[in-house]
Computed example of a mutant assay.
Amino acid sequence: MQKRNILIIGIFVVVGLAFWYTLTRSTDEEIYVENIQKERERQFRFLKFNLDSPLEDHQKSELTSLSFYPIDMSYRVRAKMVPAEDRRMLEIPMTDGTVEKYLKHSYAEFQLNGQPLRLLLLQAAKESDKRNFFLAFADDTSGEETYGGGRYINLRQDGKNSITIDFNMAYNPYCAYNPDYACPLPPRENILEIPIRAGEKDYKKD
């Protein structure tokens, strides 16, 4: 086979692989966005119609939508789990002044938009599945664009020493909708000085 033909075939292979990669990536992103949208719809329907919703009846009748930041895949990060050296039960303050016990389990270390971050992963005292974790955090949007008491993400360990954190899945605690509910406050390790413009906004604001 002539050298020129080999070069042409090589170019076609590279172009084909690039097209396949772009198509696959696009499809994956579309599926990802669709799944986030479905979860947001499920969340809305729970608050609007479920008997266990924290909303009062008049709030349910007035609720037409929830407010979210645009879905941004850059806020889905892979974090290294570093075990806490002083692993122990913590009494996490609640919004009503009481406390609730959580295990200080490990730290999630990752980079977000080029900035290194470290967040404390908690585990409920009664959690039976030891791969499930609770992340409560506040950031520079708290009290302005998002609920002042912080937001939550439910996490599941998906690697031996790693975990995926998707800030697009950040949601408001019940007390953001109804002050009669008591909610855990973010530990000091999880109060960020940067804005996390992903996930749910304060439902009373645009």
Rank of each mutant, 00 (worst) to 15 (best):
K3P: 00
L7F: 14
I9Y: 15
I11S: 14
I11W: 02
I11Q: 08
V13M: 12
V15A: 12
G16M: 14
A18E: 07
A18M: 11
T22F: 15
T22Y: 15
T22H: 15
R25C: 04
S26N: 15
E29Q: 09
E29Y: 01
E29A: 10
E30M: 01
E30V: 04
V33K: 07
Q37H: 09
Q37R: 04
E39S: 11
R42A: 11
F44V: 15
K48H: 09
F49R: 11
L51R: 12
S53A: 06
S53T: 12
L55G: 02
H58M: 09
Q59W: 11
Q59I: 09
E62K: 10
T64P: 01
S65Q: 15
S65M: 09
P70T: 14
D72W: 03
S74K: 14
K80P: 02
K80F: 00
A84R: 00
L90P: 03
E91D: 15
E91W: 02
I92D: 09
P93V: 06
P93C: 06
D96R: 00
T98C: 00
T98K: 06
Y102L: 10
K104S: 13
H105E: 09
H105C: 05
Y107S: 00
E109R: 07
Q111L: 04
Q123I: 09
A124E: 10
A125H: 04
E127C: 01
E127Q: 14
E127W: 00
E127M: 02
E127D: 10
S128L: 13
K130E: 11
F133G: 10
F134K: 06
F137A: 03
D140S: 14
E144L: 13
E145D: 15
N154E: 08
L155R: 08
Q157L: 03
D158L: 00
K160L: 12
N161V: 07
C175R: 07
C175V: 12
C175N: 09
A176T: 06
P179H: 07
D180S: 08
P184H: 01
R188I: 10
E189S: 08
E189R: 03
N190G: 04
I191E: 01
P195R: 05
R197Y: 02
R197C: 05
G199P: 04
E200C: 08
E200M: 10
D202W: 14
K205A: 05
